[in-house]
Design a protein around this nucleic acid. Structure first.
Length: 378
DNA sequence: ATCGGAACAG
DNA sequence: CTGTTCCGAT
């Protein structure tokens, strides 16, 4: 029998087909690898998604320090994971094993003493996915507080994370799904060699050349560097620049609507202006050469962050081994028929109600008011 | 509960 | 490579 794992949280109504790219996982990030046996969603990614939806807060939720989450219902989470991967016999024991593999990769680590509690290495996972967060971090390094009202010292505060991960707080940015024919995958490894596997930590980030010096890339002052698209020429040097095409950045950060208040049980009105108060000048001051007006990933901050994360490593288990290559892979369902719904713009309405395994509990309730903003016909 | 080795799958 | 499946050890 074929487990119809087509439906999944990713496809539930809580996530609009045109999920706002830019902050959370942009649709292009989910694009399936056009190679046979395209990869499937990764566990950490899946976890992040569960975490992001309130519907699952009974099973898994943020708790404790930033990046820390607790699996309240291991069996349920395992079940969901199993559904997603078409592994009917999945259980927490197995899922946790997979989770443990993340330790060495530093994507996760265990919060000792707390049952079923793990913690994300957001400086690693998030930064590369969330330029804005990175920006926040950057500004912190600059002694500024990008989030007036937010924790001055916690770029990864629960509030920040919540709002960044929450699809319900996502503001529709520029639309235009970047499904450019050549926008295949973007390996972080490619973008951030020092975060990638292989050369991992043996290649100090600090050694990366400044991005304007002898840059192999032309000066695309508007932020989007075509070189980052598909055929990223890694030949000579791998230079990180702006991680995302311009449409992934808000025209003006201050235009972003305030993130919905989330994180039940925690006072967080103050974080309402999380993404609003980011001074636009930061965008330019951080990376004047590459991403002037729209903000973007700042290399130095990422580097700093990566380092900090490293130092953070408790049992200095200097793993010369591969450190995560947080590849953003596709999230299409496990069936080879990923064509059905690739979770991207063309993705129609989640095929629910039909051949569901009946195990899912959609809990439809998303009342997203995300209107599709069609290109601001500039 | 948690960990991590080992074999194995896709 | 990312898990999945087992499993003995702690």
């Amino acid at each position: 029998m074929d487990c119809s794992c087509v439906s999944d949280i990713l496809l539930t109504p809580s996530v609009p087909a045109l999920w706002t790219p830019g902050f959370a996982f942009p649709d292009w990030a989910y694009k399936p690898e056009s190679s046979p046996g395209s990869r499937q969603i990764q566990l950490w990614h899946f976890i992040l998604e569960l975490l992001q939806k309130e519907e699952y807060h009974d099973f898994i939720a943020w708790q404790g320090d930033y990046g820390e989450f607790v699996i309240k219902d291991p069996d349920e989470v395992a079940r969901l994971w199993g559904i997603r991967k078409c592994k009917p016999h999945m259980n927490y024991d197995k899922l946790s094993r997979a989770l443990r593999y993340y330790y060495n990769k530093r994507i996760l680590h265990k919060t000792k003493g707390k049952r079923f509690t793990y913690k994300f290495n957001f400086s690693k996972v998030v930064l590369v996915n969330y330029p804005l967060l990175d920006m926040a971090n950057s500004s912190l390094l600059l002694g500024q507080n990008p989030f007036p009202g937010a924790h001055p010292h916690d770029p990864f505060s629960p509030e920040a994370l919540q709002s960044l991960f929450s699809s319900t707080s996502r503001a529709p940015l520029l639309d235009r799904p970047i499904t450019a024919p050549d926008t295949e995958k973007l390996r972080l490894e490619t973008t951030f060699p020092f975060l990638g596997s292989g050369s991992a930590y043996t290649k100090p980030p600090a050694l990366l050349p400044p991005y304007n010096r002898n840059s192999p890339f032309p000066d695309y002052s508007w932020g989007f560097n075509p070189y980052l698209s598909s055929s990223f020429p890694l030949s000579g040097s791998k230079l990180p620049t702006s991680l995302y095409p311009p449409q992934f950045y808000p025209t003006s950060l201050s235009q972003l609507p305030p993130p919905l208040s989330l994180l039940p049980g925690e006072p967080m009105d103050r974080s309402n202006s999380l993404l609003q108060g980011i001074p636009q000048r930061l965008c330019t001051s951080l990376n004047p050469h590459i991403v002037p007006p729209r903000g973007g990933a700042d290399l130095s901050s990422i580097v700093a962050s990566a380092r900090r994360e490293r130092a953070e490593q408790p049992e200095g288990k200097q793993e010369p081994e591969s450190d995560s290559d947080l590849e953003i892979t596709d999230v299409s369902d496990c069936s080879s028929e990923a064509e059905g719904c690739v979770y991207s713009p063309p993705c129609p309405v989640p095929p629910m109600g039909t051949g569901q395994t009946g195990e899912e509990r959609p809990k439809a309730d998303a009342k997203l008011s995300l209107e599709k903003v069609t290109a601001p016909t500039s």
